[in-house]
Amino acid sequence: MNPNYLDFEQPIADLQAKIDELRLVSSSNDFNITEEIAKLEEKSASLTEQVFSNLSDWQITQLSRHPLRPYTLDYIKNIFTDFDELHGDRHFADDAAIVGGIARLDDEPVMIIGQQKGRDVREKVRRNFGMPRPEGYRKALRLMEMAERFNLPILTFIDTPGAWPGIDAEERGQSEAIAFNLAVMSRLKTPIISTVIGEGGSGGALAIGVCDRLLMLEYSVYSVISPEGCASILWKSSEKASEAAKAMGMTAGRLQELGFVDRLIDEPLGGSHRNPRLMAANLKLALQETLDELRGLTQEELLEQRYERLMNFGSFE
């Protein structure tokens, strides 16, 4: 099994392995099998298309957590210029599970805040698998308030399994840190665009996700609890995660139908990790257009619409 492919992608992985093998052979031998390789690549593409045209909610959830999926810092590198990372909450520590800083989108300065997962084992641990502690949320708040003072739009990138459920986090007020961000973000006098690039895990995601416009990548998810958590509580078995994922309706597509998502951003064939540059270009365009739209509003309109948006959340009789 190839760890860079998910279980449902294995037929694609097998085909890809065959292609790689043939390439090796063709480079070391004289006979020409280019035609054969081209044929197989075509087959691989159509197989990928076939697999990806009919993904279940659970498969999309798995894709949102794909180990090769681009993370916040990858998008920062591919979309923005002149990024200056800013560190620390000024009270306790610098939480590596949240990165933030100022950069330019084209020529315009913006504030960027996002959760960051690690790529290799050591970095995963250092970034706590993208699960922020209170100091991470307080750093985010500090940067957002700075953005307000200097009139910088705020772009947040959501990618977390959730806020860190640890003793230390509880001691330092995880609940208060999240709650305070929700309250303050509702009134910051600058545009806020949030993009779910991978996993939108509950309150830990929302704490940087109160926004004027919510964008989601095609294979990203956003939910009140992880499907595993939901399954173990309601189905009393974490193996029912795929059922829980479907019941909650947590994929970008479903959430757009339900009215939560302002813009769904297409991913390259096979997911964003198969073509990170194309993905970044798609996201960049979406961010530019959304930002232009928000720049057309007066500050008063912006805040009124944000408050309206928040007050309209809910479904009741």
């Binding site: 709650a179 309250a183 509702s186 509950s202 939910s223 909650m248 959430l255 928040l310 959340f313 479904s315």
Partner: peptide, 21 residues
């Protein structure tokens, strides 16, 4: 949050916090 209301329930966190602000 009430899991059976999924993202609708998550967003009540933002809604109530905004009203309190």
């Amino acid at each position: 949050a009430r899991m059976q209301e999924a993202l609708f329930s998550l967003m009540q966190m933002a809604k109530t916090s905004a009203a309190l602000e």
